[in-house]
Design a protein around this nucleic acid. Structure first.
Lengths: 121, 121
DNA sequence: CAGCATCCTCTAGGATACTG
DNA sequence: CAGTATCCTAGAGGATGCTG
């Protein structure tokens, strides 16, 4: 067991996944990984079933964990921009891998994601 | 959106993580990744805070998803053995990566997991 | 546009006891 | 040893309306 910041972890893998557990974090990270800079509403609209509460909550947690950075790019009208921070970029290999794995799995199950991508918007 | 087996997914990454979401799956997989073959109680004892219910439930789901295989190695006394199946082994790169990431993160925060490993049993 | 504040639901997950 | 079967609760997550 590893004791760290008031929590206990089974192993380093446990530590790593504690950053990206939660229903939406991986999806937000992968979205930012793909699009580099995105506004609040762009992220929301890409994740059709996320609630405002969840979105802002997860964004905040990930900002606190320094996985992402938020930048105010204009104050009137108020506009912001989210992007991966260094720690967040460090997860890119997982995104890459999970993406390829998913595409391969779908293909093995009769769905050609790459070919039919425009259908899945 | 991707419709598949009665669920909808945002993207292939969503598909991939649907297999390993849940509080314990990654930890069980990484444990099997490390030890190859493990009995029910060996897995349980390595995950001190897991409940019997969760353990058997997650094992079953992962067996159904063909991430792991269960083998009865003796019927009296009843003994079983869990191991990674092909699909489960396919996640090894994520385990490897997450393990290294966690170790590096811990080190950056003053915990030398490798050096002090015997403390974390 | 980019959120917060509330209130509410529901189910993931835990505790405990029991079985072949 | 390797699990089931119940019962129960905390808190993850959703719906909705409001604000600077």
């Amino acid at each position: 067991m590893i004791a760290f910041k008031g929590r206990t972890y089974t192993c380093p893998i446990d530590v790593t996944f504690s950053f990206i557990n939660g229903k939406w974090k991986v999806l937000i990270l992968s979205h930012l990984y793909r699009y580099k800079k995105r506004s609040y509403s762009e992220i929301r609209d890409n994740l059709p079933r996320i609630s405002e509460k969840m979105l802002s909550q997860q964004l905040k947690e990930m900002e606190a964990d320094e996985l992402i950075v938020k930048k105010t790019i204009s104050s009137k009208p108020y506009r912001v921009e989210y992007a991966l921070a260094k720690n967040g970029k460090a997860f890119s290999p997982i995104m890459e891998f999970a993406s390829k794995w998913g595409i391969r799995y779908l293909k093995a199950n009769g769905i050609d994601y790459l070919k039919d991508q425009e259908l899945y918007k």
